[in-house]
């Protein structure tokens, strides 16, 4: 009747979760800084392009950050894939009906949202970092002879198709993080007792702040509050 000796797995599910949490922390950190960067748009062309120039001027550091982030993304996806695989194998025959009582839509769509974010990210890189989407805009220069990212940014988001795609991207990110950030605290063993309730709130709160922070600049562009002129 016993299932026999339990199989031994190379990496435990809790370790995989910790990998996801640590890489998650790094990526959330990046996302927050990135959002603050976007907000510089409100300070006008010079400030925004200054910021872009500063980042590009980091040289080796920039590449360390880029490869670091890529590594984080890779590890995050690898751990998620391994976990998801195990989770799917854990219930070979499903229920006709399984009612949810506490979980959220965000929690149930982590894998899907994660995938969506990954592809949106590729597009986003192609658009602003590699300049493949609108090659002409990528050649614009400002009064100091630098790449005029400000105009690139503002003009792009005046296009409702680009704006729509981008907002969907932001929604996925926020949904992913509304569960992910809270989950991160739990995995790191930090949510307990009187901290439990506040930490339940952290994910949604971070998600809302990020949504506002990321949605505001492009919406401002579309509504003509921020203009390229």
């Amino acid at each position: 009747m016993s299932q026999g000796k339990a199989q031994s797995l190379l990496v435990s599910s809790v370790t995989l979760k910790i990998v996801m949490a640590i890489t998650g922390v790094a990526m959330v950190g990046f996302v927050v800084i990135h959002m603050l960067g976007h907000l510089i748009v409100f300070q006008g062309r010079v400030a925004y392009n200054d910021y872009a120039e500063f980042l590009q001027g980091l040289g080796g550091l920039k590449w360390i950050a880029r490869f670091g982030l890529l590594g984080m993304i890779g590890a995050h996806i690898a751990a998620a894939t391994a976990l998801t695989n195990r989770n799917q194998r854990a219930r070979p025959e499903g229920y006709v009906k399984l009612r949810s009582r506490r979980t959220t839509f965000a929690a149930k769509s982590m894998w899907f949202a994660g995938l969506a974010i990954f592809f949106a990210l590729l597009y986003h890189l192609a658009h602003f970092t590699l300049g493949w989407v609108d090659a002409e805009q990528y050649t614009w220069i400002d009064e100091f002879g630098r790449h005029d990212l400000y105009s690139h940014f503002v003009i792009s988001f005046e296009d409702p198709r680009i704006l729509g795609t981008y907002l969907a991207f932001v929604v996925f990110v926020c949904m992913h993080l509304s569960h992910g950030v809270t989950s991160m605290f739990k995995t790191m063993g930090l949510s307990r007792g009187r901290f439990t309730k506040p930490i339940e709130m952290i994910g949604p709160v971070v998600a809302i702040i990020l949504f506002l922070g990321f949605a505001a600049p492009p919406l401002a562009c579309m509504m003509g509050v921020v203009t390229a002129g």
């Binding site: 299932q3 000796k5 339990a6 199989q7 031994s8 797995l9 435990s12 599910s13 809790v14 995989l16 979760k17 976990l83 195990r86 989770n87 799917q88 194998r89 854990a90 219930r91 949810s100 506490r102 979980t103 929690a107 149930k108 982590m110 569960h179 809270t182 989950s183 739990k186 995995t187």
Partner: peptide, 15 residues
């Protein structure tokens, strides 16, 4: 944790 994983249970995703 090793025993739990080895029995074929899934992992926790904090639902």
């Amino acid at each position: 944790v090793t025993a739990m994983d080895g029995e074929g249970f899934g992992g926790c995703t904090n639902h």
